[in-house]
Amino acid sequence: MSNPLISARGLTKKFGDFTAVDAVDFDVAKGESFGLLGPNGAGKSTIMRVLAATSQRTSGTVEILGKDPELFGPLVRAHLGVVPQQDNLDGELTVTENLYIYGRYFGLSKKFISNKIEELLEFAQLEEKRDVKVEALSGGMKRRLTIARGLVSEPDILLLDEPTTGLDPQARHILWDRLFRLKEQGVTLVLTTHFMDEAEQLCDRLVVMDKGSIMAEGSPASLIKQYSSKEVLEVRFGSDRNKEVAPQLATMCERMETLPDRILMYTEDGEKLLEKITHAGMHATTSLVRRSSLEDVFLRLTGRTLIE
C-alpha cells in the first residue's frame, strides 16, 4: 500500500505477563473503511487505544500520517475523531454544549464551532434535542452525538470502538446509515466490532482477530470466498442426536462444524445437500440454507463462534 494513513508493524502490547496484542501488522489507506473483527478480548480495543495515542505500545512501530503517536501524541490526536466503546458524553452539559466544548478542547474558534454545530446536529438527527441535557437522550441518540462530537474537528480518521454494541436493531440501522454517509464523504473509518453483519456492511477491508493475533485479512467477500463455501446448510436433529448423525453427515459435504445446538455443513448448493440427507433417511427437525458469512470464516479460523 503506498502512503498508508495508518501503519502498524509488529505492534505488541503486554499488561504484565498477559499479551493483549501480539506482533500485529496492518495498514489503512486514505478513505478506506477498515475493520477489526473479533470476539471480546481479542485485543481490538487495545489496538484502538494505541492508535488513539492514549496507550503506549510495548514494542513494534506505529505511524499515523507518518507520525509516531507516542512521540507526537497531541498532534496525532488532532487528526483523529474518537468514538469510545462506552459513551463518555459530558452529562452536565446539553447536546449543543457537548459539541461546543469538545471543539474547544481542540482549540477551535467559537465561530468555527458554532457553524459546525448546525451541520453536526443535522448529521446526528438531533436538531430537536439541541438544548436537552445528554442524560435524557436514548442510547442511539447518545451514540450519534458521540460520533458527531468526534467529527467537530473535521478529523482525517474516525476511530469507532464497537459503535453499535448495546443498541437496538433500529438504532443500529440508523447508525450504519450515518457511517455510510461519512464513508461517502471520504472520511477514513477504523472500527472494531464483534458483529459479522456490521463488518460486512461497513468494512471495505478487515482483519479477523483472535487472542491478540490477526488470523486473516481481506475484504468481507474475499475472506468468505477464501475460507468458506458459497452456502451453508444448518441442520438440527435435537441435541442428543446431533452427535450420533455427525459422522455420517461428514462424508456428505466438503467441511462440517458441529456446534452444541446445530450442525453447519459447508457446500456449494445447500438445497441439493438437504435433499441428499433426507434421501439417506435422516430427517432434520429444522434446516436452513443460507449464504456463508464472516461468522463462518471466524469459525473456520478459530474453531469458535464470535459471540459466545
Binding site: 474518537v82 469510545p84 463518555n88 459530558d90 452536565e92 482549540g107
Partner: peptide, 14 residues
C-alpha cells in the same frame, strides 16, 4: 465516574 479527564485526554489537550 464521568471519566471526563479521559475524554479530554483523547483530544490534543495534555
Amino acid at each position: 465516574e464521568s471519566k471526563l479527564y479521559k475524554t479530554m485526554l483523547s483530544t490534543p489537550l495534555g
